[in-house]
Amino acid sequence: MRIAILEDDPNQSLLFQRLLGMGGYEFESFDSIQALMLGLQLGDYGLLLLDWRLPDGTGEDVIRMLRGSLRSEMPVIVVTANDDERDVVRALNAGADDYVVKPPRAMALLARVQAVLRRVRGEQGVSSGRIGRFAIDVEGRDITCEGRPVRLTQKEFDLAFHLFAALGRTVSRKQLLEQVWNNEPGSSTRTLDTHISRLRRKLGLESEAELRLVSVYGFGYRLEKAESGARLDRRMAGVRSDEDLLAA
């Protein structure tokens, strides 16, 4: 299932693409109403992420076009630069299913997407699912291990989500601080390392586990399956991280 993005700001469009990609969604981006309408004729999309203010019209124009066409049942989430009550009311009255405020946080956006898909079309969003012993529920913001709930703080859950979404890939400390803490004052690599230690203990992601959370020296962290991890460790032996190479 692909998500259509209508956003004329290239930077905002890239942000939405990155966040949706983190949730496992496929997507295609358009920068004008005309381009979107052509794309809808040629492709199949399960949801529209819609900017409210566009160079050739408004989000309200787009929604009314959709609701009066063969795409009348297509769910729409409006993205607005502010939470002005008038714009929100206009969007919902026009037929939008939900809205988010720029700049969106990853967890909030993916939870809204999943909730709309569940409510409107009965689909299960791919941002929730099962990995090994763990079941992740983004909307409920909880993780269970073999059916037992794991008590996590909000930051711990956000951190776990990003690591599970990047399973098998190394995520830099800088990226995790941006995604989870949004560069909040007082956040630091020490803050991240402390949360990683707690998360490793609470979820049992030790070196001998089926899933393990490993440190990549001088760079970041990687959540990996133990079998593939052994091969990665052998392949990466003696190879320095990107930060080490840049510092050399």
Rank of each mutant, 00 (worst) to 15 (best):
L203M: 15
V79R: 01
R200P: 08
D87S: 13
L54P: 08
R169F: 07
R198Y: 14
R118M: 08
N11K: 11
F16D: 01
R173K: 05
L6E: 00
D242K: 09
V171R: 01
R222T: 05
V216R: 12
I131A: 09
A106F: 02
G220P: 15
H162R: 10
E156Y: 04
L152V: 14
Y217V: 10
G168C: 04
G21C: 09
Q41L: 15
V126L: 00
S188A: 13
F219D: 15
G43P: 02
L211P: 01
M22Q: 11
Q175L: 09
S215C: 11
F219M: 12
E139S: 09
L110H: 03
L48I: 15
G21D: 11
T170K: 00
Y99V: 12
R71M: 07
R151H: 08
Y221D: 10
Q179M: 05
E26V: 03
G147L: 05
V78K: 04
T191R: 08
V101T: 13
L199W: 08
E210R: 15
M37H: 09
M107R: 07
A209S: 15
L232Q: 08
E139F: 02
R169L: 05
R118N: 07
Q154N: 11
K225P: 04
F16Y: 15
G129D: 05
R118L: 13
A226I: 14
T144C: 03
